[in-house]
């Protein structure tokens, strides 16, 4: 129970950060980091997978609700909530017996960075492609994915270190 309160606290904090700070950056019209997907990395692994996906969909819909972009973040979140256990299974032997969040302590730094990078690329690709909804400005979209991805990566790592040391 205490674990869930902590999780909801972190989730609210992330939503707050996303909606009030990062969504207002508008750097060059290109950089739009999405740190809220850290919340999906922190979903407890002992939950059944369908539950993880439904929770991922819910988190995505919350973001969609605030950013007036129906379905876009939901699509990205569902995909990474589905992929996370699959990918973690590559790095950990007994993935079914894992409990709690996926953190640096669980995976080790190298594997954590790898997992984070893959999830961010998948998520950002879905989000920015769906937003553009055309391949007409593909170069621009790819640049958006790359630059935003780099910033999301840095922000999430920062958050992860803060979490680890508190």
């Amino acid at each position: 129970m205490a674990q869930w309160f902590k999780y909801i606290g972190i989730l609210l904090l992330l939503l707050f950060m996303q909606v009030f700070l990062l969504d207002n950056l508008h750097w060059l019209g290109l950089v739009h980091p999405y740190v809220y997907l850290w919340a999906i990395l922190l979903l407890p692994m002992e939950l059944p997978r369908w539950m993880q996906m439904l929770l991922g969909a819910t988190i995505g819909m919350l973001i969609d609700w605030f950013t007036h972009s129906p379905g876009i973040h939901m699509a990205g979140c569902v995909m990474i909530a589905f992929l996370r256990p699959q990918l973690v299974a590559n790095y950990v032997q007994d993935v079914d017996r894992l409990k709690g969040a996926i953190t640096i302590n669980v995976l080790g730094l190298g594997n954590y960075l790898r997992l984070l990078a893959i999830l961010i690329v998948v998520h950002h690709s879905i989000v920015f492609m769906l937003e553009a909804f055309t391949f007409y400005h593909l170069g621009y979209t790819l640049l958006q994915i790359l630059l935003s991805g780099v910033f999301s990566f840095a922000f999430i790592l920062m958050l992860e270190y803060v979490r680890k040391n508190t």
């Binding site: 369908w50 996906m53 439904l54 969909a57 995505g60 969609d64 609700w65 007036h68 972009s69 129906p70 379905g71 876009i72 939901m74 699509a75 569902v78 995909m79 589905f82 769906l130 909804f133």
Partner: peptide, 27 residues
Amino acid sequence: LLLGLEVVAFIFVVRGNRYQQVAASGA
């Protein structure tokens, strides 16, 4: 389930992008 949820999301996207419904989803 993944396919189902993605289809739902996609329907939201297509409906939400239409000009008249720009920001209809609770905007």
